[in-house]
Design a protein around this nucleic acid. Structure first.
Length: 475
DNA sequence: GCCCACCGCGCG
DNA sequence: AAAGCGCGCGGTGGGC
């Protein structure tokens, strides 16, 4: 049986959302085109220089001999053939269609000086082509006008294109700085980014209502990501509690916590399982240089705890003793059976109901149907409703800005955050309005939100740029 | 010259 | 029993 994919209230949200986002698109985002021009030149020079350098490498020599006139440094197919068929490097990693994988993870296992330079060139090319040139191409009268679509995504989230404003680099500080310096406020303004903290975790909790998760969300002294990082890396709490005023140590703790969050907690929520978790947690130790306060690598620390190697990661074999694989298998079991059994039970119940009914209804009234995999059934409801919290807030914020005849402009949206271009003199009012809408009004409007909602705001200096955003506490 | 599948990678 | 969710974009390589 087919069901209308929306209820009247969810239809209204899409309708109001489309109208408000049209205004956001029309406002546009100011771009420093002169900076982009210079950056393009600099990047091009660096790429040329590095490309020159690797010409001497035996890999390129072999490559040219094999492919002659067809030689193309950007061809990953050719690179795979050179490395794995010609030069005899081992790889058991294959793509869905059976080709050798040539992503960063696979390539970095190859011990050859060429690889580092090649990966560097790849990153610089991506930065230049997708971001510097891609953004500059879209500038009209000093502004870009990214589209924010509401009709494309299966989960009823939004997407953005031309250019995509939802994937601007930020995780790599060097690349993030390079690109974000091009995003600037209008004269006398600041850029303000207001985002929900952990909205997907909160929304998920509104579905499953696991009491242990509720404790984590309600008690600000508790920290799930930190706790899981402790358990995964077998560290005492003390090792994850930064020494006050010590910036270096704060960063060390932050990095370990980051790995707990992004290599264990979120992937587990999305449906990953222990072999992949063990591998990523293990790789992060070297790539992020994770260490204890006294400077010993977590690899050494784990060895002292009896974990000497990663393991075979073969799902048909039982993990061996003394491996990270076995340890993380146990952490995973504890995670779902002991820590969050109610969450676990909800997942099973939710999937069973979907298979029985043929559709699911989100807390925001949107309806998903069709042939979905287990992980999709679990994740769609959470991802969609989390975004609807943002969309509802964006609509409401625009109404309040209009009502108060403010000059602040909403210029973009990134799934759980709102980006605005705000005159300096309106800053305090704007931040207060944002808090009012995203925290108070939202909870008043939707009584299914049974968890605390928190937001953070990051603000740039007047006439600064997006890279200079810094956190501002607004409750 | 255009279209498409695939791969890889940027973000939440 | 299965085993990471959602996007957009750039490049290659093949087909028309």
């Amino acid at each position: 049986m087919n069901v209308l994919p929306y209820t009247p209230e969810s239809y209204q949200l899409m309708h109001d959302g489309a109208i408000t986002l049209a205004r956001v698109e029309s406002n546009g985002i100011r771009i420093d085109t002169e900076y982009l021009r210079k950056t393009a030149r600099r990047l091009t020079r660096r790429i040329d220089h590095l490309s020159q350098k690797i010409q001497e490498s035996e890999v390129v020599q072999t490559w040219k001999t094999k492919f002659k006139g067809r030689f193309n440094l950007n061809s990953l197919d050719q690179l795979g053939a050179v490395l794995f068929e010609e030069m005899g490097f081992e790889s058991d990693q294959r793509t869905a269609t059976g080709k050798h994988k040539t992503d960063e993870d696979s390539l970095s296992r190859i011990n050859h000086p060429f690889i580092q330079d090649y990966l560097k060139i790849k990153t610089l090319n991506k930065t230049l082509n997708t971001y510097v040139l891609g953004i500059r191409r879209e500038v009209v009268n000093g502004l870009i006008h990214p589209f924010f679509n509401l009709h494309l995504v299966t989960t009823f989230r939004s997407s953005s294109d031309s250019p995509n404003f939802q994937n601007i680099p930020v995780r790599d500080p060097i690349i993030g700085k390079l690109i974000r310096q091009a995003f600037i406020p209008r004269s006398g303004h600041r850029l303000v980014e207001a985002d929900f903290s952990g909205i997907e975790v909160s929304v998920a909790a509104c579905y499953h209502k696991d009491p242990r998760m509720m404790e984590y969300l309600e008690d600000k002294t508790k920290d799930m990501h930190r706790d899981m990082a402790m358990q995964c890396y077998m560290l005492p709490l003390e090792e994850l509690t930064p020494t006050k005023g010590d910036k270096e140590d704060t960063k060390r703790c932050k990095n370990i916590r980051y790995c707990g969050k992004n290599a264990f907690v979120f992937p587990e929520f999305y449906g990953s399982y222990y072999p992949d978790r063990a591998r990523e947690l293990w790789n992060y130790i070297s790539s992020m240089d994770l260490k204890k306060r006294d400077g010993t690598s977590l690899l050494v620390h784990l060895r002292e705890q009896g974990i000497r190697e990663l393991g075979d990661l073969d799902p048909t074999q039982k993990p061996r003793r003394g491996t990270m694989e076995l340890h993380i298998q146990q952490v995973e079991k504890d995670f779902w059976e002991k820590r969050f059994p109610i969450y676990d039970a909800w997942k099973k119940k939710w999937v069973k109901a979907y298979i029985q009914d043929g559709f699911m209804r989100m807390l925001t009234g949107f309806i998903c149907q069709g042939y979905l995999k287990r992980n999709e059934i679990i994740n769609y409801a959470v991802q969609g409703s989390a975004f609807h919290c943002l969309l509802w807030s964006l609509i409401r914020l625009q109404r309040k800005l209009d009502k108060h005849r403010m000059k602040a402009l909403i210029i973009g949206q990134i799934h759980d955050s709102i980006v605005s271009d705000v005159p300096d003199e309106e800053l305090n009012d704007f931040l207060e309005l944002s808090r009012e809408v995203m925290v108070d009004d939202l909870k008043d409007a939707w009584d299914w939100i049974i968890t605390p909602i928190n937001i953070e705001a990051e603000v740039t200096p007047v006439d600064g740029n997006w890279f200079q955003k810094a956190e501002m506490t607004i409750g």
